[in-house]
């Protein structure tokens, strides 16, 4: 039941005020990005542009396009691979438990909480040794490895909801480890793959620390390039804002169209099974 009628308008008032606060950065980002440089002044920050000017998008796009491509080359294989490994691990850890498997699972989970600074120095040494330093392939590898804990967790929790009786009866019918995975678990995992896929896509796309330490210039994903836009010269805020929007667009679109699954991933990431 809802709060009494008198308080209703107040509820809407608070919600609308907060909505405006949450949308404020979007508004400023949009109006700034459509302004020509001379209009991007301190005093006119909140004003709408006098004319719609796409030049900052052209500038931002020309500068970020290669890095946007890098991000796609990084995110697509890393997402697919980490989801596949995660589903297998989750399958084993939920349906083929063995002595110590729960302890092992906890040990795996710890990996998703560590500050990556604490593994960066050896990681970079290692990538140099095997010749993957400063390459997209190296970043893919890193994101697959450090994505394992979260994808394993998500799939384990997801598979926990598939009744064990199904597995049991499949076993009686003579299905083995792989058979059960292929014919029962995998077909039932579509939602799981969507949730995990969206989660990994968003996180890897947005990731910065690995990207900035493992790659330089030509190999950099878009977030590093965006950060570099401001470092380069006098800050052209209109180009900055256009760049920020371009860099955010893929994950924003995913959110707009598949937000439901994104939120499910969000909740799934808070451990609990």
């Amino acid at each position: 039941m809802a709060v009494r009628t008198l308080t209703r308008p107040i509820i809407y008032l608070i919600l609308i005020a907060l909505t405006l606060f949450y949308l404020m950065p979007v508004y400023v980002m949009l109006v700034t990005s459509f302004k020509p440089l001379q209009e991007v002044t301190l005093a006119d920050m909140w004003k709408l542009p006098t004319t719609i000017d796409f030049s900052s998008y052209v500038t931002a796009f020309t500068r970020l396009a290669p890095n946007l491509m890098n991000s796609f080359y990084l995110v697509i294989p890393a997402t697919i691979l980490s989801a596949l490994f995660g589903s297998l691990n989750g399958y084993v850890l939920s349906k083929w438990k063995f002595k110590g498997s729960d302890v092992l699972f906890t040990a795996i989970l710890f990996g998703m909480f560590i500050p990556y600074q604490s593994i960066l120095i050896p990681l970079i040494q290692f990538l140099r040794e095997i010749g993957l330093y400063n390459s997209i392939a190296g970043l893919v590898f890193v994101h697959v490895v450090y994505g394992l804990p979260i994808t394993t967790l998500m799939f384990r929790n997801f598979y926990a909801s598939i009744p064990d009786s199904m597995i049991e009866s499949a076993k009686i019918d003579g299905a083995g480890f792989l058979g059960i995975f292929r014919h029962i678990m995998f077909p039932l995992s579509i939602t799981g793959f969507v949730v995990v896929g969206i989660w990994q896509f968003t996180n890897i796309w947005n990731e910065f620390l690995f990207a900035v330490t493992i790659t330089t210039s030509a190999q950099q994903p878009v977030m590093v390039a965006l950060q570099n836009l401001s470092g380069s010269q006098i800050v052209q805020w209109n180009v900055q804002m256009a760049g920020a929007l371009l860099a955010a667009l893929p994950t924003l679109l995913v959110y707009i169209f598949l937000g439901k699954f994104f939120v499910r991933g969000l909740l799934a990431g808070s451990v609990k099974g």
Binding site: L18, T19, Y22, L23, M24, P25, V28, M29, T32, L42, A43, M45, W46, T202, W205, N206, E207, F208, M223, L226, Q227, S230, W237, Q240, M241, G243, A244, A247, A248, T251, L252, V254, Y255, G259, F262, V263, L266
Partner: peptide
């Protein structure tokens, strides 16, 4: 959806946008 969408953004994007919004000589200060 409006309260959730920033979660889908990168901290880098947030940083860049808020740096402009809270720019001491402009932004919210006006």
């Amino acid at each position: 959806n409006i309260f959730f969408f920033p979660m889908a953004l990168s901290f880098v994007v947030t940083g860049v946008v808020w740096q402009w919004l809270l720019n001491p000589s402009t932004g919210v200060n006006l």
